[in-house]
């Protein structure tokens, strides 16, 4: 099974996010970039499918030069090769633009499954995977938390939880785009030896011009301004001599002050 893992480089979730001077983007100094937390699961699912069924995993990422570091990391955790679609323009970090560029790069490749994951923890968007499937003319299953190979590798049965406590099982014929939910497969970490070996694996760079894609033209959204969400007013600790007193006071406050009961 040949598998493509789309990976997004994102700021470490511990990074302090500060709005930059022009209020159009965040200040990038001091930010540590990592493989997106959700992509850790999808990449691992790709590697495990490959380990079970043969074939190879290609990691692919769209973004500026720094993205190469994340792709090297993927090569150290099981990908055989990596493709970097280089685009330095931060305003091209747009779902349609990314999906268009990824689709152009993926179309000529041979593959059975393309993995993406729930969302970028920076973009908070959750769109690129489905848009990529649509651009490739392939079926898509979002937010998959469990999957099994069926029909001798021709299909996958995917399980996912949707709103209202419903669990869906969806059978999808391959090739298809699968979007992983957290926990699909527990990620592995690279050993020093893996990291050394990864340096010898192929990492190809393509420009959007090489792919014949007009990323700028595909962008349909423009950032007007960034703001911090409204700060919560400081709260208070509830006084009381006993648990009972505190609980009674809490219920009173919820009813009379917060008016939420």
């Amino acid at each position: 099974m040949n598998i493509i893992a789309c990976v997004r480089q994102t700021p470490d979730t511990e990074s302090a996010i500060k709005i930059g001077g022009d209020a159009k983007a965040i200040a990038t100094d001091g930010i540590k970039y990592v493989l997106g937390p959700y992509d850790e699961y999808s990449h691992e699912a790709a590697v495990q499918l490959m380990e079970k069924n043969g074939g190879e995993v290609t990691a692919i990422s769209f973004g500026p030069e720094r993205v190469k570091e994340t792709l090297r990391n993927c090569l150290a955790i099981g990908a055989a090769k990596a493709v970097h679609i280089l685009d330095e323009d931060a305003s091209h970090d747009d779902a349609l633009a990314i999906a268009t560029a990824l689709a152009a790069a993926i179309k000529p490749m041979t593959y059975d499954v393309v993995f993406t994951s729930n969302k970028g923890t920076d973009s908070d968007r959750g769109l690129v995977g489905a848009m990529l499937a649509e651009k490739l003319g392939l079926p898509y299953v979002g937010l998959v938390s469990e999957l099994e190979v069926e029909d001798g590798g021709k299909a996958l049965v995917c399980t996912r939880d949707v709103e209202g406590g419903q669990r869906e099982k969806i059978k999808v014929t391959l090739p298809a785009v699968i979007c992983a939910q957290k926990g699909l497969r527990e990620p592995r970490y690279a050993s020093l030896m893996n990291i050394m070996q990864a340096k010898k694996k192929p990492l190809e760079t393509k420009s959007v011009a090489d792919l014949g894609v007009d990323t700028a033209g595909a962008v349909k959204l423009q950032v007007e301004k960034l703001e911090y969400p409204p700060q919560r007013p400081p709260g208070r600790l509830i006084d009381g001599a006993s648990v009972d007193e505190k609980v009674k006071e809490l219920v009173r406050l919820l009813k009379e002050e917060a008016k939420v009961l």
Partner: peptide
Amino acid sequence: TTHGRELAAFVASRLNLGLASE
């Protein structure tokens, strides 16, 4: 929602429309 998100993404991609999510 799970369904709404992917439906909107498919429609926006098919027609190349700007889609602001969440």
